[in-house]
């Protein structure tokens, strides 16, 4: 975070100076020398434009599977109720996460076998930490978030903006 903001700061200092230059010359050359300048492909056309730090740093999408149990809130692990190779049912409490003055139950999203536990009791964890790996015993564990078989939009019939 610290290095990020420093980068931004540096970028912006240079940028404002260059914008001044652009104002004076209005030439294409000066604009294309702006930091962050790049191309943005949209609907088959590549636009030459400045890409903002926020855009460049945007979170890439990662599909999540029911086999991976993530924390949804930062906190401290208070209890772990399972051990590797345990068989659990959908809805079973796997561990207790103490967060925001509450004991939150982290439950299994699918029937399955516990493969590994990646946290210890007393450990402070952040949001989106991988807590537990499971192997699903039902179809939905592996398939529910699978994108391969997703229906493709038929562009011939669906005209979009």
């Amino acid at each position: 975070m610290k290095t990020d903001s420093k980068k931004t700061e540096k970028k912006n200092n240079v940028k404002s100076g260059d914008v001044e230059k652009t104002k004076r010359k209005h030439s294409k050359k000066t604009i294309s020398s702006l930091p962050g300048f790049g191309t943005l492909p949209l609907e088959g056309l590549s636009y030459q434009t400045v890409l903002t730090t926020k855009f460049v740093n945007r979170e890439k999408y990662k599909p999540k599977s029911n086999n991976e149990v993530y924390s949804l809130i930062p906190g401290t692990i208070k209890k772990i109720l399972i051990s590797p190779d345990d068989v659990v049912k959908k809805g079973d409490v796997l561990c207790i996460l103490n967060a925001m003055k509450m004991d939150n139950s982290i439950c299994a999203a699918t029937d399955g076998i516990i493969k590994s536990i990646n946290v210890k009791i007393g450990e402070t964890i952040n949001k989106n930490t991988l807590l537990i790996n499971m192997e699903s015993l039902t179809e939905d564990g592996n398939k529910s978030h699978d994108h391969d078989e997703e229906e493709q939009l038929d562009l011939e019939t669906n005209v979009i903006f």
Binding site: H26, Y47, T49
Partner: peptide, 21 residues
């Protein structure tokens, strides 16, 4: 004299310019 539309504005749709000008 400082802000001339003709100089600021490119006609090609993909070329950038500063709209504030």
């Amino acid at each position: 004299k400082k802000y001339k539309i003709n100089e600021v504005f490119p006609t090609l749709p993909r070329q950038p310019y500063d709209v504030r000008n």
